[in-house]
């Protein structure tokens, strides 16, 4: 009886948790930020410090997506995400009293399968966390870390395991880190909500996927997103669509919109040498296809001659996690060819 009641108290608390269960937004991200640090236009980015956790900000994530081709010739996608949520603006960094909760999602997607798992953890005791140098991000037995002797995040080993899948991948970057917006200060709404946001979009990645049908050797490209803030969304904003594309000509494109009363668009066009051209409202056009969430989009950057259609490798890539969303690999056709990842949040559950 006690055990069951304890479970209920846990459910009650976790359901009300502003971060861990609702990190990716949509509900919690427009919330109260009293006492937390706020993104600052003048702050800039400092490495390796900023690879690590920023406990004084309310929310933060380490988000790796990979487009892979198997030795069987099929397209695969992999996601590894760690979310941090502060439960209080300040507090000890060590021990049970540390006010940090962690949540992680891992997924492996093929044209006919989508496998995912979720983990929860407490900060302060070593179960989950991120260190900047040497870089390591982990929760339970999942991790994304620089191998011994590697500096920064240029090389990573990424592992995760769920009930019916697992993967073990190694990534090597062939380009510089990319700061979005203004020196990594990325505005998310017309009323000025913003986050600190940088990426490493130049990874080559290879390794092994373990799927219900057996192990597959894979290789491809990966994109790491790093973002932290205390209130990236305006209260009226309900969700977002985020697209990261690896174009065959070597360019990378990040295009996103936050949906609210009027959509707020932003993006970055990244040259093969890492030069960034920030894209604002007017530089960028996103048109959703049919369906909810729509798994086909038309993406246009007229100034750069980009007019492409992206299509989900597996339209059935919903993440039925504690906060549900859609995340999966896409193929690119049109003015350029390529592949990438699509993430859609805040759509009514299907």
């Amino acid at each position: 009886m006690n055990a069951r009641r304890a479970g209920l108290v846990a459910a009650l608390l976790l359901a009300a948790l502003p971060g861990a269960a609702q990190e990716r937004g949509f509900a919690g991200l427009g919330g109260d930020n009293a006492g937390y640090a706020l993104p600052d236009r003048a702050r800039g980015l400092t490495f390796p410090r900023d690879h690590g956790a920023h406990e004084d900000f309310r929310i933060e994530w380490w988000y790796l997506t990979a487009n892979l081709r198997g030795e069987d010739g099929r397209d695969y996608g992999v996601q590894w995400t760690l979310f941090r949520s502060a439960l209080a603006p300040e507090g000890p960094l060590q021990g049970w009293a540390a006010p940090q909760a962690w949540m992680a999602h891992a997924a492996a997607t093929s044209p006919d399968g989508h496998h995912f798992a979720e983990r929860f953890g407490r900060g302060g005791i070593g179960q989950a966390g991120v260190t900047a140098a040497p870089f390591a991000a982990w929760i339970d037995d999942w991790q994304m870390a620089a191998p011994e002797g590697a500096a920064g995040i240029d090389r990573l080993r990424v592992t995760a395991r769920g009930g019916d899948f697992g993967y073990d991948l190694s990534a090597t970057a062939h380009g510089p880190l990319v700061a979005h917006g203004q020196n990594g200060f990325s505005v998310k709404s017309a009323s000025g909500q913003a986050s600190h946001y940088y990426s490493q979009p130049f990874y080559d990645i290879e390794g092994t996927l373990a799927l219900p049908g057996g192990e597959v050797k894979v290789a491809g490209q990966a994109w790491l997103d790093r973002e932290w803030s205390s209130q990236p969304l305006d209260r009226s904003q309900r969700g977002w669509d985020w697209i990261a594309l690896h174009l065959d000509d070597g360019r990378k494109l990040m295009a996103a919109q936050v949906r609210g009363d009027a959509p707020f668009l932003f993006g970055s066009l990244i040259a093969p040498d890492g030069t960034v051209q920030p894209l604002r409202q007017g530089d960028l056009m996103l048109d959703a296809g049919r369906g909810s969430p729509p798994t086909r989009w038309r993406v246009r950057v007229p100034g750069a001659g980009i007019d492409v259609t992206i299509d989900a490798v597996n339209p059935d890539s919903g993440m039925a996690t504690s906060v549900p969303y859609w995340e999966g690999p896409v193929t690119v056709e049109g003015s350029s060819r390529g592949r990438g990842y699509l993430e859609m949040t805040g759509y009514p559950a299907r």
Binding site: N2, V9, A10, A11, A20, A101, F120
Partner: peptide, 10 residues
């Protein structure tokens, strides 16, 4: 009774 709600629910 001391519990850990985050991992407990998982």
């Amino acid at each position: 009774l001391g519990i850990e709600p985050v991992t407990r629910l998982g």
